[in-house]
Nucleic acid binder design. Structure first.
Length: 823
DNA sequence: TGGAGGTTCCCC
DNA sequence: GGGAACCTCCAT
């Protein structure tokens, strides 16, 4: 009897010849496949090699044996190799179990994953984990089907099996067969062995059930909507917010799912609104596409430039530089139309899906149902459906956050990245990629242009535009209609010199009371929640500190709690100092809660609301506050970044930045850039309607370039100053940064490991540290880091192998290439 | 001495 | 992730 090769006893001589790479064995090759498995379930180096039996193509989902288990993986490489090259004997090669029907990662995405792995120093399986269709593993189902009839004589049971299969339409699921008596199951297996029935893994057939999609749109009765917002807005905040978001989105029908996503509400809210007649149901075919507005000359120039790059298949990067209201979106849409007309697809990236309501609805009204929106509200099943819809070419526009770059688009013609400067484009978990960098590689792979849009571009992108690597297109702001607010800088050091620093400088306080007298509204911005950042004992100097992190515990007066804003740890406020038992334990510094309190004293008649993460954590509270403010049931709104993004409040004429210095004092070389961006954005909240706006920026650093240039709405001025500083100190874009983060519960072990990393790094590199991180302890883990400054085009392979050579028990070492946060 | 419980390290 | 193999410590 023939036995499988692996069972033949091996003679010592045979083994010797393999080890020595002898002529007979060492030089013969086999066709093999590299299969990437899920790194979470197959370990860090989850790339395994299997014999290639010719069934699987590159990118195919396959089931493979690993140890005694089966695992789902994706074919990432097909090649011929000798045993030496493999590093193990051919007889140890296993074959794949089977190819999963109908799931294949496009070749471009495999190349993109390789780029991510090389650029961000992670393994290919980790890079690939962001490309794979979500939840396939859970949706796999074995299916029995009829195979080739053989001449052999069949038992009664076997005949019964074939008859059952025929009656079931030639196919039975694994579950259906599993429910049959054991004897019959054995017969299935026997018939499979002789090829008369087949058993394959495939996606469970839920996908076939595709219901006709129903859409909703706002009623055209605007008076009814306004009446609802005024009278019922307070009682039904979720419904009111939904209406406001839909108003902001501007009209076209959306699916209930999309409405849920953009307002953060449930199906119930949507249904209630439909019941009340404020939303109307429409079917897909009723949707009329809107007629695009005529572009102005600057927009037309931009569109022409991008369009010719699309038709010439040039992977040019454009920077579309213009303030809000300058018409960037119209350029995106026209360029997108161009790509679609050529039978290619469009990828539209946004930093946060909740803030992209206008983009979604404009895409919808311009391009109809071929738009797929990816967002965090999707269930796993919905994600998988969307993934397949995109892969099958049914969706020609994909809109989503950074993860959308890995959508399986087969023939991309245009990439749009709106608000390209946003830090949300950097992924802070492995793979730690920056979507801007990856998107540009994707554009190169597809041979299509990429349009980066911003009013305050990243210094990196604008610098490249100056150097010519990126084509700059400026859109001048529109004249009369969108007037920029006046910005006044208020020097807080004056207040200290006069002895008693007030919460608001007199000019700002006056401006607010004048606005209130005219029936207008004001927003006050402070980028720090809680009442005060810490409590301090007036007798012994003790400060409240988190037991798990190296930060102070913030004082939350309303809750009577001390909270850590890093790890969430909270304790009841002690009545006396834990160190000296003094009762003079007082709040120091400023938070939104205290601003709110101060405003109530300053403007006792005003209706004041607050919006920050503490408020928004209560379900429905965000909606309540926003709809009350919008309905003018509130005069002054105090808040963090949350108030700077998203909604338009046309009646707001005064915006005050309570302390611009909080973001300036962050120990990070980008803090100036971030402050400029933040101030520009906050300033944009004033005077959005027909009324002129005034912005007041209170600061201890009135001379800081970020403050001075934000006052003049002068991005270029800020850029020129900031870029010189970057060059002088040696930061991006002039050098490349790599941050190596070493963490663990044992401080000594972390210290030792960080030293070992230092020693393992190749000589000749500029290495800062190892040093404690600005946040030296987080969640009971000590943190040290090394910062590498490398030439912009450095080969990082040596850095990776140096880091991987270090292994200290309980210590993890993470490499962050092109870090966005250094704390 | 053995077995319970923890840790490490392979899986192609 | 899961299982084998290896390691450690202590009760007997």
């Amino acid at each position: 009897m023939l036995r499988p090769v692996r069972d033949i006893p091996r003679s010592p001589g045979w083994r010797l010849s393999t080890q020595l790479g002898g002529r007979d064995h060492g030089e013969s090759t086999r066709a093999v496949l590299d299969v990437a498995l899920d790194p979470k379930s197959a370990g860090r180096r989850a790339l395994w090699t299997y014999a290639d039996n010719g069934d699987a193509a590159l990118g195919d989902a396959v089931l493979v044996p690993i140890g005694k288990r089966q695992a789902l993986g994706f074919v990432v490489r097909r090649y011929e190799a000798t045993a030496d090259e493999l590093g193990f004997r051919f007889d140890e090669l296993k074959s794949i179990i089977e190819v999963v029907n109908g799931i294949r990662i496009p070749g471009v995405l495999l190349d993109l994953a390789k780029f991510v792995a090389e650029t961000y120093l992670c393994s290919l399986p980790v890079a690939l984990s962001v490309c794979v269709p979500p939840g396939v593993r859970e949706r796999l189902e074995g299916a029995w089907s009829l195979g080739a009839p053989a001449g052999e004589k069949l038992s009664v049971v076997q005949q019964e099996v074939l008859r059952t299969l025929q009656e079931a339409g030639g196919e039975l699921s694994e579950a259906e067969v599993g429910a049959l008596p054991e004897g019959i199951q054995r017969a299935f297996k026997a018939l499979r062995a002789s090829g008369q029935v087949n058993f394959v893994q495939r996606l469970a057939p839920f996908l076939e059930r595709r219901q006709k999609e129903k859409l909703v749109r706002l009623t055209s009765d605007e008076a009814a909507i306004e009446a609802f917002l005024r009278s019922e807005g307070k009682r039904k905040p979720a419904q009111a917010l939904t209406l406001m978001r839909l108003q902001a989105a501007g009209g076209p029908p959306l699916s209930p799912l999309e409405v849920r996503a953009l307002a953060g509400v449930t199906e119930t809210t949507v249904r209630a609104l439909a019941q009340e007649g404020l939303l109307e149901w429409v079917t897909t075919d009723e949707v009329k596409l809107s007629v695009p507005p005529t572009p102005n000359p600057e927009q037309q120039l931009a569109v022409d430039a991008i369009s010719s790059a699309i038709s010439d298949r040039e992977s040019t990067a454009f920077l579309l530089f213009g303030v809000t209201g300058s018409g960037k979106t119209e350029v995106y849409l026209r360029a997108a139309a161009q790509a679609l007309a050529m039978g290619r697809q469009v990828l539209y990236l946004v930093p946060e899906i909740a803030l992209a309501t206008q983009a979604i609805s404009q895409m919808r009204s311009r391009f109809g149902r071929g738009v797929a929106v990816l967002h965090s509200e999707l269930t796993q099943l919905e994600r998988l459906r969307t993934w397949l819809r995109i892969a099958n070419g049914e969706a020609s526009v994909v809109l989503g956050p950074r993860s959308a770059i890995f959508a399986p688009l087969p023939n991309l013609g245009l990439i749009v990245m709106d608000e390209e400067h946003e830090s949300a484009y950097k992924q802070e978990q492995s793979p730690r990629y920056h979507a801007r960098t990856v998107a540009r590689e994707l554009a190169r792979l597809h041979g299509c242009p990429i349009v980066l849009g911003s009013a305050t571009p990243s210094l990196e992108t604008f610098y490249e535009a100056e150097k010519g690597g990126v084509t700059l297109i400026s859109l001048p702001s529109r004249a009369a209609s969108a007037q920029m607010p006046t910005v006044e800088i208020c020097d807080l050091t004056q207040g200290y010199r006069n002895g008693k620093p007030a919460l608001l400088v007199p000019e700002l306080a006056t401006a607010i009371s004048d606005a209130l007298a005219r029936g207008e509204q004001a927003i006050l911005f402070l980028n720090r929640r809680a009442y005060a950042p810490f409590l301090m004992c007036r007798d012994c100097g003790y400060r409240t500190a988190c037991p798990q992190c190296s930060v102070a515990l913030s004082y939350h007066r309303g809750e009577r709690k001390l909270r850590c804003h890093q790890c969430g740890h909270s304790v009841v406020v002690p009545s006396e100092c834990p160190k000296c038992t003094s009762t003079r334990l007082n709040p120091f510094g400023l938070g939104t809660e205290k601003v709110e309190e101060g405003l109530r004293e300053l403007f006792p008649a005003a209706r004041i609301g607050r919006l920050d993460r503490d408020i928004a954590s209560r379900k429905g509270a965000l909606e309540e506050v926003l709809s009350a403010f919008r309905a003018q049931d509130m005069d002054i709104l105090v808040g963090t970044q949350m108030v700077a993004k998203g909604l338009d409040f046309p009646n707001v004429t005064v915006v005050g930045v309570v302390a611009a210095d909080i973001s300036l004092s962050v120990p990070d070389f980008r803090s100036g850039e971030r402050t400029f961006q933040l101030l520009s954005q906050v300033a944009g909240r004033a005077g959005r309607g027909s009324l002129p706006g005034r912005v007041f920026v209170q600061t201890f650093n009135p001379e800081h370039p970020a403050v001075v240039h934000a006052q003049g709405h002068d991005y270029v001025g800020f850029f020129e100053e900031a870029i010189l500083e970057r060059q002088g100190v040696g930061y991006p874009p002039f050098l490349r940064l790599v941050n190596i983060l070493v963490t663990g519960p044992d401080r000594e072990a972390v210290g030792k490991a960080s030293g070992l990393v230092r020693d393992a790094l190749p000589s000749g590199l500029t290495v800062l540290g190892p040093a404690d991180c600005p946040l030296e302890r987080l969640n009971n883990r000590w943190r040290r880091h090394l910062l590498l400054k490398l030439p912009a085009v450095a080969d990082l392979a040596e850095v990776q192998s140096a880091v991987e050579s270090v292994s200290v028990r309980g210590v993890s070492v993470v490499i962050d290439v092109d870090p966005v946060s250094l704390s």
